[in-house]
Deep mutational scan, measured.
Amino acid sequence: TTVHVNGVTYHFPNPEEAKKFVDRVVKEAGLTVEVKGNQWDVE
């Protein structure tokens, strides 16, 4: 699973890890998340 955060790419072994990361980032920074298949874009 690939997560893009403001142009930076993070790779995770599974969607659960990616979701935990995204949830944390979104809570801390108040960002928006767009999910496209296995790819997350966070802005």
Rank of each mutant, 00 (worst) to 15 (best):
V3H: 00
L31G: 14
F12D: 01
V35E: 11
V3W: 01
V8L: 08
Y10I: 06
E34L: 04
G7V: 00
V35R: 00
V33F: 09
G7F: 02
D41G: 08
K19P: 00
E28Y: 06
P15K: 10
H11F: 13
K19L: 09
H4I: 15
E28M: 04
A18Q: 01
T1I: 15
F21H: 01
T9Y: 11
F21M: 01
K20F: 04
D23G: 02
G7E: 02
E16V: 05
W40Y: 09
V25P: 02
G7Y: 01
A29S: 12
T32I: 13
D23S: 03
V42D: 10
E28N: 05
E43G: 11
E34Y: 04
T2S: 10
A29L: 15
H11S: 07
P13G: 07
P13T: 12
P15Q: 11
K27H: 10
V25A: 05
F21G: 00
G37R: 02
W40F: 10
R24K: 13
V5N: 02
K36S: 15
E34V: 14
V35S: 04
K27N: 10
T9G: 04
T32Q: 09
E28C: 08
D41Y: 15
V3A: 03
V8T: 08
T1A: 10
G37K: 04
P15R: 08
K19F: 06
T1D: 03
F21K: 00
V25L: 15
E17G: 01
E17R: 00
T1Q: 06
N14E: 04
H11V: 07
L31W: 15
A29W: 14
V33C: 07
P15S: 12
G7I: 03
Q39F: 07
G30Y: 06
E34M: 04
V26C: 10
T2A: 07
A29P: 09
N6I: 02
G37W: 15
V35C: 09
E34G: 08
Y10Q: 02
Y10K: 02
V33L: 08
V22S: 03
T9N: 06
E34I: 15
A29Q: 14
K36Q: 15
D41N: 12
Q39Y: 14
A18G: 01
E17T: 05
D41Q: 13
V33R: 00
F12V: 00
A18I: 01
N38L: 04
F21Y: 03
G30D: 08
F12K: 00
V35L: 14
N14Y: 03
E43R: 08
V33N: 11
V22I: 12
F21R: 00
T2R: 05
T2V: 12
G7P: 00
A29T: 14
V25N: 04
V35K: 03
V33I: 07
R24E: 13
E17A: 07
N14R: 01
H11G: 02
P13A: 12
T2Q: 07
V3R: 00
F21A: 01
E28V: 06
G37A: 04
K20S: 08
T9I: 13
P15V: 12
V26Q: 12
V33P: 07
E34S: 12
W40H: 10
N6R: 03
G7K: 02
V25S: 03
T1S: 07
E17I: 04
T1V: 15
L31I: 13
Q39W: 14
V26K: 10
V26W: 11
P13S: 11
E43P: 10
T1G: 03
Q39R: 09
N6A: 08
G30N: 10
E28T: 05
V22L: 10
V35H: 11
E17F: 01
A29I: 10
P13Q: 12
K36H: 15
G37Q: 09
E17H: 03
N14M: 01
Y10R: 00
V35G: 05
A29V: 10
Q39G: 14
E34Q: 05
V25H: 05
N38Q: 11
P15C: 09
K20M: 07
T32V: 14
T32H: 12
W40D: 11
V8A: 07
K36R: 04
E34A: 08
E34K: 03
P15I: 13
H4W: 14
K19Q: 13
L31F: 12
E34R: 01
V35A: 02
V3F: 02
Y10S: 01
H4Y: 14
N14T: 12
G30Q: 07
T32A: 11
A18T: 02
Y10H: 07
N6D: 08
V33H: 08
K20W: 05
K20I: 09
E28L: 05
L31T: 11
E43A: 12
V42S: 10
V3G: 00
